[in-house]
Design a protein around this nucleic acid. Structure first.
Length: 257
DNA sequence: CTGGGGACGGGGCCC
DNA sequence: CGGGCCCCGTCCCCA
Protein backbone atom coordinates (compact mmCIF):
# COMPACT_ATOMS: atom_id res chain seq x y z
CA UNK A 1 0.00 0.00 0.00
CA UNK A 2 1.61 3.24 -1.10
CA UNK A 3 1.93 5.98 1.44
CA UNK A 4 -0.34 8.88 0.92
CA UNK A 5 2.41 11.29 0.06
CA UNK A 6 3.30 9.23 -2.96
CA UNK A 7 0.26 10.62 -4.68
CA UNK A 8 1.60 13.99 -5.60
CA UNK A 9 -0.45 17.02 -6.34
CA UNK A 10 1.25 18.24 -9.49
CA UNK A 11 -0.92 17.25 -12.43
CA UNK A 12 1.81 15.82 -14.63
CA UNK A 13 3.02 13.64 -11.79
CA UNK A 14 -0.39 12.68 -10.58
CA UNK A 15 -0.94 10.94 -13.87
CA UNK A 16 1.89 8.59 -13.15
CA UNK A 17 1.05 8.18 -9.52
CA UNK A 18 -2.51 7.46 -10.46
CA UNK A 19 -1.18 4.20 -11.85
CA UNK A 20 -1.16 2.92 -8.34
CA UNK A 21 -4.74 3.83 -7.72
CA UNK A 22 -7.23 1.04 -7.83
CA UNK A 23 -9.30 2.59 -10.57
CA UNK A 24 -7.21 4.01 -13.35
CA UNK A 25 -9.17 5.91 -15.91
CA UNK A 26 -8.78 7.60 -19.23
CA UNK A 27 -5.18 8.43 -19.95
CA UNK A 28 -4.12 6.49 -16.90
CA UNK A 29 -5.55 3.35 -18.36
CA UNK A 30 -3.58 3.97 -21.46
CA UNK A 31 -0.37 4.31 -19.54
CA UNK A 32 -1.11 1.36 -17.40
CA UNK A 33 -1.55 -0.79 -20.41
CA UNK A 34 1.86 0.26 -21.57
CA UNK A 35 3.48 -0.35 -18.26
CA UNK A 36 4.36 -3.80 -19.38
CA UNK A 37 5.77 -2.68 -22.67
CA UNK A 38 9.40 -1.88 -23.04
CA UNK A 39 10.17 0.90 -25.43
CA UNK A 40 13.70 -0.27 -25.76
CA UNK A 41 12.25 -2.95 -27.96
CA UNK A 42 10.09 -0.76 -30.08
CA UNK A 43 9.36 -2.26 -33.45
CA UNK A 44 12.25 -1.66 -35.75
CA UNK A 45 9.93 -0.07 -38.23
CA UNK A 46 9.12 2.61 -35.70
CA UNK A 47 12.74 3.53 -35.25
CA UNK A 48 13.48 3.47 -38.90
CA UNK A 49 10.46 5.46 -39.88
CA UNK A 50 11.42 8.01 -37.26
CA UNK A 51 14.89 8.27 -38.68
CA UNK A 52 13.79 8.27 -42.26
CA UNK A 53 11.02 10.74 -41.99
CA UNK A 54 12.17 13.00 -39.20
CA UNK A 55 13.62 15.66 -41.42
CA UNK A 56 10.53 15.65 -43.56
CA UNK A 57 8.78 17.17 -40.59
CA UNK A 58 6.22 15.17 -38.73
CA UNK A 59 3.57 17.00 -36.86
CA UNK A 60 3.64 19.99 -39.09
CA UNK A 61 0.81 21.05 -41.32
CA UNK A 62 3.29 20.64 -44.10
CA UNK A 63 3.59 16.95 -43.68
CA UNK A 64 1.35 14.39 -45.35
CA UNK A 65 1.90 12.33 -42.18
CA UNK A 66 0.55 14.94 -39.83
CA UNK A 67 -1.15 12.33 -37.68
CA UNK A 68 1.81 10.27 -36.70
CA UNK A 69 0.54 6.91 -35.55
CA UNK A 70 3.65 5.30 -34.15
CA UNK A 71 5.04 5.21 -30.63
CA UNK A 72 7.71 7.74 -31.30
CA UNK A 73 7.27 11.05 -32.96
CA UNK A 74 10.20 12.70 -34.52
CA UNK A 75 10.76 16.04 -36.04
CA UNK A 76 13.51 18.43 -36.79
CA UNK A 77 14.25 21.89 -35.62
CA UNK A 78 13.64 24.79 -37.85
CA UNK A 79 17.13 26.03 -38.45
CA UNK A 80 16.36 29.64 -39.17
CA UNK A 81 13.40 30.52 -37.07
CA UNK A 82 13.59 28.44 -33.99
CA UNK A 83 16.64 27.43 -32.04
CA UNK A 84 15.32 26.54 -28.64
CA UNK A 85 11.66 25.95 -29.19
CA UNK A 86 9.54 23.01 -28.27
CA UNK A 87 7.04 21.15 -30.38
CA UNK A 88 4.25 23.02 -28.71
CA UNK A 89 5.77 26.33 -29.55
CA UNK A 90 6.29 25.20 -33.06
CA UNK A 91 2.73 24.03 -33.35
CA UNK A 92 1.34 27.22 -31.92
CA UNK A 93 2.18 29.10 -35.08
CA UNK A 94 2.33 26.70 -37.92
CA UNK A 95 1.98 29.48 -40.43
CA UNK A 96 5.17 31.06 -39.13
CA UNK A 97 6.90 27.77 -39.10
CA UNK A 98 6.37 27.02 -42.73
CA UNK A 99 4.45 29.92 -44.11
CA UNK A 100 1.19 29.80 -45.94
CA UNK A 101 3.01 30.39 -49.14
CA UNK A 102 5.13 27.38 -48.56
CA UNK A 103 2.10 25.24 -47.96
CA UNK A 104 0.61 26.32 -51.18
CA UNK A 105 3.80 25.70 -53.03
CA UNK A 106 3.68 22.18 -51.85
CA UNK A 107 0.66 21.57 -54.00
CA UNK A 108 1.34 20.91 -57.59
CA UNK A 109 -1.84 22.68 -58.59
CA UNK A 110 -0.49 26.01 -57.43
CA UNK A 111 2.51 25.86 -59.69
CA UNK A 112 1.41 25.14 -63.18
CA UNK A 113 3.46 22.67 -65.21
CA UNK A 114 4.70 25.48 -67.29
CA UNK A 115 5.77 27.58 -64.35
CA UNK A 116 7.33 24.59 -62.67
CA UNK A 117 9.53 24.06 -65.65
CA UNK A 118 10.36 27.73 -65.78
CA UNK A 119 11.13 27.88 -62.06
CA UNK A 120 13.71 25.21 -61.58
CA UNK A 121 13.91 26.07 -57.87
CA UNK A 122 10.45 27.20 -56.89
CA UNK A 123 10.80 26.51 -53.16
CA UNK A 124 12.29 29.55 -51.54
CA UNK A 125 13.60 29.87 -48.02
CA UNK A 126 12.02 32.90 -46.42
CA UNK A 127 15.02 33.47 -44.19
CA UNK A 128 17.95 33.50 -46.56
CA UNK A 129 16.27 33.76 -49.96
CA UNK A 130 17.86 30.58 -51.18
CA UNK A 131 15.71 28.52 -53.49
CA UNK A 132 15.37 24.79 -53.83
CA UNK A 133 14.04 22.51 -56.48
CA UNK A 134 12.07 20.30 -54.13
CA UNK A 135 10.15 20.71 -50.95
CA UNK A 136 12.34 18.10 -49.36
CA UNK A 137 15.48 20.04 -50.21
CA UNK A 138 13.99 23.19 -48.74
CA UNK A 139 12.98 21.43 -45.59
CA UNK A 140 16.36 19.82 -45.20
CA UNK A 141 17.89 23.25 -45.54
CA UNK A 142 15.53 24.72 -42.99
CA UNK A 143 15.86 21.81 -40.57
CA UNK A 144 19.49 20.93 -40.26
CA UNK A 145 19.17 19.37 -36.82
CA UNK A 146 17.19 16.31 -35.93
CA UNK A 147 15.17 16.06 -32.78
CA UNK A 148 12.97 13.40 -31.32
CA UNK A 149 9.76 14.34 -29.61
CA UNK A 150 7.95 12.42 -26.91
CA UNK A 151 4.41 11.51 -27.81
CA UNK A 152 3.25 11.73 -24.20
CA UNK A 153 4.58 15.18 -23.38
CA UNK A 154 6.28 18.10 -25.09
CA UNK A 155 9.87 17.19 -24.38
CA UNK A 156 12.31 16.70 -27.19
CA UNK A 157 15.68 15.01 -27.41
CA UNK A 158 18.57 15.03 -29.81
CA UNK A 159 18.94 11.28 -29.81
CA UNK A 160 16.58 8.39 -30.00
CA UNK A 161 18.30 6.81 -27.04
CA UNK A 162 17.62 9.81 -24.85
CA UNK A 163 14.02 9.83 -25.99
CA UNK A 164 13.57 6.16 -25.25
CA UNK A 165 15.02 6.69 -21.80
CA UNK A 166 12.57 9.50 -21.24
CA UNK A 167 9.63 7.47 -22.53
CA UNK A 168 10.31 4.97 -19.79
CA UNK A 169 9.22 7.66 -17.35
CA UNK A 170 5.80 7.39 -18.97
CA UNK A 171 5.64 3.65 -19.51
CA UNK A 172 7.26 2.61 -16.21
CA UNK A 173 8.39 -0.85 -17.29
CA UNK A 174 10.04 -1.86 -14.00
CA UNK A 175 7.47 -3.31 -11.65
CA UNK A 176 7.91 -4.21 -8.00
CA UNK A 177 6.99 -7.85 -7.47
CA UNK A 178 6.04 -7.14 -3.88
CA UNK A 179 3.64 -4.22 -4.17
CA UNK A 180 3.25 -3.82 -7.91
CA UNK A 181 4.50 -0.28 -8.03
CA UNK A 182 6.16 0.61 -11.31
CA UNK A 183 9.30 2.59 -12.04
CA UNK A 184 11.08 3.97 -15.03
CA UNK A 185 14.45 2.41 -14.32
CA UNK A 186 15.70 -0.75 -12.67
CA UNK A 187 17.81 1.05 -10.11
CA UNK A 188 14.82 3.11 -9.04
CA UNK A 189 13.03 -0.15 -8.46
CA UNK A 190 16.03 -1.40 -6.48
CA UNK A 191 15.83 1.64 -4.25
CA UNK A 192 12.15 1.05 -3.78
CA UNK A 193 12.66 -2.60 -2.88
CA UNK A 194 14.87 -1.41 -0.03
CA UNK A 195 11.80 0.16 1.50
CA UNK A 196 10.41 -3.37 1.72
CA UNK A 197 13.58 -5.09 2.89
CA UNK A 198 14.79 -2.34 5.19
CA UNK A 199 18.26 -2.46 3.70
CA UNK A 200 20.23 0.74 4.30
CA UNK A 201 23.61 0.47 2.62
CA UNK A 202 24.56 4.14 2.85
CA UNK A 203 26.03 4.84 6.26
CA UNK A 204 26.91 8.20 7.73
CA UNK A 205 30.53 8.38 8.85
CA UNK A 206 29.71 11.01 11.49
CA UNK A 207 26.92 9.21 13.25
CA UNK A 208 25.42 5.77 13.22
CA UNK A 209 22.60 6.58 10.89
CA UNK A 210 22.15 4.64 7.69
CA UNK A 211 20.08 5.36 4.63
CA UNK A 212 18.59 3.42 1.81
CA UNK A 213 19.13 6.30 -0.59
CA UNK A 214 22.41 7.99 -1.37
CA UNK A 215 20.77 11.34 -1.92
CA UNK A 216 19.22 11.17 1.48
CA UNK A 217 22.61 10.41 3.01
CA UNK A 218 24.01 13.42 1.21
CA UNK A 219 21.26 15.59 2.60
CA UNK A 220 21.84 14.12 6.02
CA UNK A 221 25.58 14.89 5.86
CA UNK A 222 24.65 18.53 5.53
CA UNK A 223 23.23 18.41 9.02
CA UNK A 224 26.74 17.71 10.35
CA UNK A 225 28.34 20.75 8.76
CA UNK A 226 28.37 24.13 10.45
CA UNK A 227 28.01 25.99 7.19
CA UNK A 228 25.37 24.44 5.02
CA UNK A 229 25.58 24.13 1.30
CA UNK A 230 22.81 26.59 0.46
CA UNK A 231 23.54 30.09 1.73
CA UNK A 232 21.23 33.06 1.81
CA UNK A 233 22.67 36.05 -0.03
CA UNK A 234 20.59 38.43 2.09
CA UNK A 235 21.79 37.24 5.48
CA UNK A 236 24.40 34.84 6.80
CA UNK A 237 22.15 31.86 7.24
CA UNK A 238 22.79 28.66 5.38
CA UNK A 239 20.62 25.65 4.79
CA UNK A 240 21.05 21.98 4.07
CA UNK A 241 18.49 21.99 1.30
CA UNK A 242 17.62 24.24 -1.55
CA UNK A 243 13.96 24.06 -0.64
CA UNK A 244 14.71 25.38 2.83
CA UNK A 245 16.83 28.18 1.42
CA UNK A 246 14.12 29.18 -1.02
CA UNK A 247 11.56 29.17 1.71
CA UNK A 248 13.86 31.26 3.88
CA UNK A 249 14.71 33.69 1.09
CA UNK A 250 11.05 34.28 0.50
CA UNK A 251 10.60 35.47 4.07
CA UNK A 252 14.05 37.05 4.25
CA UNK A 253 13.33 39.08 1.14
CA UNK A 254 10.16 40.36 2.77
CA UNK A 255 12.08 41.43 5.83
CA UNK A 256 14.61 43.36 3.74
CA UNK A 257 11.91 45.42 2.05
C1' DC B 1 7.24 27.29 11.27
C1' DT B 2 11.51 24.87 10.69
C1' DG B 3 14.59 21.25 9.83
C1' DG B 4 15.34 16.59 8.82
C1' DG B 5 14.12 12.13 6.79
C1' DG B 6 11.90 9.00 3.25
C1' DA B 7 10.85 8.13 -1.35
C1' DC B 8 11.39 9.11 -5.74
C1' DG B 9 12.35 11.70 -10.67
C1' DG B 10 15.26 12.48 -14.36
C1' DG B 11 19.32 14.19 -17.11
C1' DG B 12 24.04 13.17 -17.90
C1' DC B 13 28.02 10.35 -17.92
C1' DC B 14 30.68 6.17 -18.24
C1' DC B 15 31.44 1.54 -19.53
C1' DC C 1 22.97 1.48 -27.85
C1' DG C 2 21.64 0.10 -23.30
C1' DG C 3 22.41 -0.49 -18.38
C1' DG C 4 24.27 1.20 -14.20
C1' DC C 5 25.39 4.84 -11.59
C1' DC C 6 25.95 9.70 -10.01
C1' DC C 7 24.24 13.92 -8.93
C1' DC C 8 20.96 17.26 -8.15
C1' DG C 9 16.68 17.95 -7.20
C1' DT C 10 11.46 17.67 -5.68
C1' DC C 11 7.66 16.40 -2.89
C1' DC C 12 5.72 15.04 1.18
C1' DC C 13 5.53 13.82 6.01
C1' DC C 14 6.66 14.37 10.67
C1' DA C 15 8.86 15.74 15.05
Amino acid sequence: MPRSFLVKKKPEKSVKNALYESKPKGRQLDLEGETMSDFSVLPKSVHESARLESWIGFGTPYSPYFQYPAEVTSYVHQGHVQTTGTPSKRDEKPADFIGTEGMENDKESVISPGNARALKKPHKCHECERSFATVAALRKHQHPRKEFACKYCEKTYVSLGALKMHIRTHTLPCKCTICGKAFSRPWLLQGHIRTHTGEKPYKCTNCQRAFADRSNLRAHLQTHTAVKKYCCNQCSRSFSRMSLLLKHQYSCGDEMK
